[in-house]
Amino acid sequence: MDSNDDIEDVSLFDADDDVSRRSKKSKIRHPVASFFHLFFRVSAIVVYLLCELLTSSFIACMVTIILLLSCDFWAVKNVTGRLMVGLRWWNQVDDDGRSHWVFEARKVSAQGGKTSSEAESRIFWLGLITCPMIWVIFAFSALFSFKVKWLAVVVMGVVLQGANLYGYIRCKVGSRKNLTSMATSYLGKQFLRQTMATEDQAAS
């Protein structure tokens, strides 16, 4: 009897501790996503800087950088943006052959459980903004030192990362702008539902 009480007490204490620990840890809720978010872009830049020291083969370097850049593009567009800040963007083609760019932000949920944490969004935007800027600097340095063969890689880096940056900025701006319209439509729906309910009551 006594021992049973003890055990319960211990387990309760443990659970409490666990909760507190989790809340401390929840600053970075998706460590894998944030790791890969930074890993691909940083390693692409590092490879670009170091490849002339490490290997003499231009092709191996170029292929590595291209693979890293495209992995980064895919990961940031499809995974980390959605997980870390709740934004996403994609392209849609309708039947007329016209293409639409859709920029979407996750609605802020009422519970507050699903919203992205502050630290994560800071990591996300920091990585998203600095890397294209570094690539732009590389582009100018390659242009002025007439390294034409590197210019292709650098332009690719600028285009891929700039596209992601542009997409997410559009998401962010769009979400801010849409907030008021969403609120009004939500209020309108609520109003409609209430009137419907009262009408039902009146009918019955």
Binding site: F58, I59, V148, A152
Partner: peptide, 9 residues
């Protein structure tokens, strides 16, 4: 070393 580079790009 130098021969292949530009052609690839």
């Amino acid at each position: 070393k130098d021969d292949g580079g530009p052609q690839f790009a």
